[in-house]
């Protein structure tokens, strides 16, 4: 079973969450070039390894959370900001997911 660590509810079954995609910083629309905007809309890292993601805890606290997940083992841990050990401030979350979850 795959579990995600919700900072509000604790570890919960992944089925309680909705996937919202890789964390993709949104460029400033006023200054972004079409190229940067294209990247923001479509390009994803899609790594085979650890990736920071946004998830929505639909059948729990109903908040957006961030987790770091290993895409091969599906092990997950709370996301931390690079360079610090502090947990990510989930209130400033920006899910830049395209059509996350594909064909549901």
């Amino acid at each position: 079973m795959i579990q995600l660590p919700c900072p509000w509810c604790g570890p919960r079954n992944v089925a309680e969450f909705r996937y919202s995609g890789e964390v993709t910083p949104r460029p400033d629309p006023a200054t972004a070039t079409p190229e940067q905007w294209r990247d923001y809309l479509y390009i994803r890292r899609n790594p085979s390894g650890w990736v920071d993601e946004t998830w929505y805890h639909g059948t729990g606290c109903r908040r957006f959370i961030r987790v770091s997940r290993h895409t091969v083992s599906n092990e997950a841990r709370p996301a931390v900001r690079t360079g610090t050990t502090a947990p990510v401030d989930v209130t400033s979350t920006d899910s830049g997911a395209p059509d996350a979850g594909g064909a549901r």
């Binding site: 996937y19 993601e53 895409t71 091969v72 599906n74 996350a100 979850g101 064909a103």
Partner: peptide, 10 residues
């Protein structure tokens, strides 16, 4: 069916 609800290489 349709794809799993999240990305993975598993």
């Amino acid at each position: 069916a349709s794809v799993d609800p999240f990305t993975s290489y598993s």
